[in-house]
Amino acid sequence: MSAEQIASPIRVGVLGFGGLGQAAARVLAGKKQMLWVAVADREGYAYVEEGLNPDACIGSYQSRGSVGYLQPSGILSDRSIADLIAQASVDGYFLALPNLPNTFIASVVHQFIESGWQGVLVDAIKRTSAVEQLLELKDTLRQAGITYMTGCGATPGLLTVAAALAAQSYAEIHSVKITFGVGIANWEAYRSTIREDIAHLPGYNVEKARAMTDAEVEALLDRTDGILTLENMEHADDVMLELAGICSRDRVTVGGVVDTRHAKKPLSTNVQITGRTFEGKISTHTFTLGDETSMAANVCGPAFGYLKAATSLHRQGTYGLFTAAEIMPQFVR
């Protein structure tokens, strides 16, 4: 999509306004090709045709717990997503939502389908099983006139597509190993994300992590000095690379370290792709993210790049479900 083709900005909505949703608002504030007009959280929503003010929305959420208290455009609602879909004129939504329970994202997608809304949806979903639920909706999304991009964060997302690109050097892929380091100065800014990570720990699952109180989370972090070490995670990079024909999912592993008390990353995030070239040589490509880039930057940037790419597809009449490993993101200016 050229600059000439988007003389008017893409009108964007953000669903979910925790740490990731607030970061998305900050990212959009610097974009000329996208206009942030709609937002919803658990208790309310806001819609302004001329564009929302990030500072005002974040202030409302942090002081009173919902953008529904934003004056004069906020509206309190216990069905905020459905109400926002019905009211707002939006080209595409970024689903910055916690996937707790594991069926939550799919249930939100059903709301869009049932409403008759047409446009673009992008998520930064993590779990393989959650993406598999969306794959079952592929034909339904196509028939509904929705272009959906899934797994468009950092991992899955940025690192998955890096692996897909690096794989082109090889005749056969032996392994894809994703290792991430995340530094968060205050875990409460990303409560849902941390709970999703806890769900991957031995002895925990999605239901148990979701049911934990903030005090129980803090007690767990006290026992680990704020460090979560995650191995062999159920991450959708595997199914995405399998669907793209890169390698079978059993050759993909994901793990990492999350420091919930310091902004500095405990280790550098990277993906290693090992394979055999057509000459018979075994080699490894490594793609490493800069330590200065935050989790929010590495999730929101790709998500909006994919939203732009999906908007181009939607305007050409291409609907259905796609993964980050199938489509290249487009840079949003």
Rank of each mutant, 00 (worst) to 15 (best):
A7W: 00
R11Q: 11
R11V: 13
G16Q: 04
A23V: 15
A24L: 01
V27W: 15
L28T: 08
G30Q: 14
R42C: 03
G44T: 08
G51N: 08
D55R: 13
I58G: 00
S66P: 07
I75Y: 04
S77G: 10
D83F: 06
A88Y: 01
A88S: 12
L97Y: 04
N102Y: 11
I105V: 12
V109T: 10
I113E: 11
S115Q: 11
G116V: 14
Q118S: 14
V120C: 01
D123A: 04
V131G: 01
L135W: 12
L141H: 12
T147S: 14
Y148A: 02
Y148F: 15
Y148I: 05
M149T: 09
M149G: 14
L159G: 03
T160F: 00
A163W: 03
A164M: 06
A164G: 10
L165T: 14
G181L: 03
V182K: 00
W187N: 04
A189P: 00
Y190N: 13
R191S: 12
S192T: 13
R195H: 02
E196N: 06
L201V: 15
Y204R: 14
D214Q: 12
A215T: 13
V217I: 13
E218R: 11
M233C: 09
A236D: 03
M240G: 05
G255L: 07
K264Y: 06
P266C: 05
L267I: 15
Q272V: 10
S283H: 06
E292Y: 08
L307A: 08
A309T: 11
S312K: 06
G317H: 09
G317Q: 07
L321G: 02
T323G: 02
M328A: 14
Q330V: 15
F331N: 09
R333M: 14
